[in-house]
Design a protein around this nucleic acid. Structure first.
Lengths: 247, 247
DNA sequence: GAGTGGTCTAGACCACCAA
DNA sequence: TGGTGGTCTAGACCACTCT
């Protein structure tokens, strides 16, 4: 085990055993340098390891802060009305439509929606905010025939974010009223590290991954009525499901 | 923007634009040193950034390899028989029971199962393997009354991994036969970086987070029959759901 | 053996924060 | 103002891989 690995292991143990509780500071770099008899960058390597594990957050002028371990909300508090609920750690936030516009479907979106690549779709971008920051960025696409049906039903233009700010269940009701009631969603959830843009938008500290959700929603005939890609901050979002079991 | 940030940004762009496709090598460190006129550690800082983003994987004696971008499997290939399926990128793997033993319930498990802390529960550990490596580690706990019911039903001892290696749907059938049919699962999915033990067990490269699933399964009376915590490799696992919609 | 990345040093200067 | 972490250098040696 190298020196910086040894230092990282020592500090990690001290954090997990509670010697350095959440919110407290690790010893300063010069302190650790003399304690272990190593150079500055060796200590920094060790701290970088813990930073990338999401354990600590170095702050200039302050010190290396031990991060809160994100408690995962459990227990039976969810609603039975929907099979799936997004939640953060302490209740709901605000889902806001940032933009909505027509665009040609790229190959992936076209395949998800079962339309020809390049055909017209409405692309809606939403930000789910909790407190001061953005916790999830959602990209949603709807095929032209669904948007047209909603419009002809007198419900307005889904490509107009200002006049149709609907999200989630509200949007689904619009589709249902227009004869395209969503009856099933096919969701796939995975995770990865954020790219720099996502890191900036959601103010993600180092060592925090994102939850990525891909969804295709279909109506009674099995035809897709919308597809969604959502990227959520891993330290603030979790996905919760109530599933009827068959086996 | 600092020098190492600039270098990282340049390399990231080159990767995403396809100049360095997956599997290819980045320029060697001495090469980048002379190209940018910087010291070795400055280049290493830049490469460390990309490593922690999951983009590259430095290999001694070889070079800095551009990683495959994990393609997410989409489309309608899942079974309707169960509402949720775990899958890796190319089919199913092997779920093996590593251990099964009685232990006193710690406070969290006791709360999930609705039993007294310290009461006897069976703790089963499973490894889900795909190819050569472990893709998911599952910890499962069952309350004493359920284990007893299965045993009295003549189905053997769930604390005996060798004789009761059942997982997933097979295990659920045992519970159902013993009068504790699971009818609903409450799942919460989140993500975080792995700890060193998880990283070693699942052979996780740097920059790969884990998917964490918490589940409580209940029978027809709403009483928990098992609870599970699963940790899956973010680059090999995704969770897929088919959800009936209500709104 | 040649080339790759990994570790480590000793020192310097900068950016930031709180008292 | 003093202490914190962030960046960067020039050089050295080590561990590993491939030929």
């Amino acid at each position: 085990m190298t020196k910086h690995q040894k230092i990282a292991a020592d500090l990690r143990d001290a954090i997990t055993t509670g010697e350095y509780p959440a919110g407290s500071l690790l010893p300063a770099i010069p302190d650790l340098m003399s304690r272990y008899g190593v150079a500055r960058d060796t200590v920094r390597d060790a701290i970088a390891t813990l930073t990338n594990e999401g354990l600590v957050l170095p702050r200039r002028g302050v010190g290396t802060v031990v991060r809160e371990t994100a408690p995962v909300q459990l227990g039976y508090s969810g609603s039975r009305a929907v099979a799936r609920t997004w939640q953060d750690q302490a209740g709901a936030g605000q889902d806001e439509v940032i933009s909505a516009e027509w665009e040609p479907a790229d190959p992936e979106i076209a395949e998800r929606l079962g339309v020809e690549p390049g055909s017209r779709v409405v692309h809606r971008v939403r930000h789910f905010a909790k407190g001061s920051g953005i916790a999830q960025i959602t990209d949603q696409w709807l095929p032209e025939h669904v948007v047209t049906a909603v419009h002809e039903n007198g419900a307005g233009d889904l490509a107009d974010a200002a006049h149709r700010p609907d999200t989630g269940a509200d949007l689904f009701r619009l589709l249902a009223d227009a004869g395209h009631a969503p009856v099933e969603a096919d969701e796939t959830i995975t995770t990865r590290m954020p790219d720099p843009l996502e890191r900036e938008a959601m103010e993600l500290p180092p060592g925090v991954p994102v939850l990525v959700t891909y969804r295709i929603t279909t109506d009674g005939s099995g035809r897709p009525v919308e597809t969604t890609t959502a990227v959520g901050a891993g330290d603030r979002m979790s996905a919760r499901f109530r599933l009827p079991l068959k086996y």
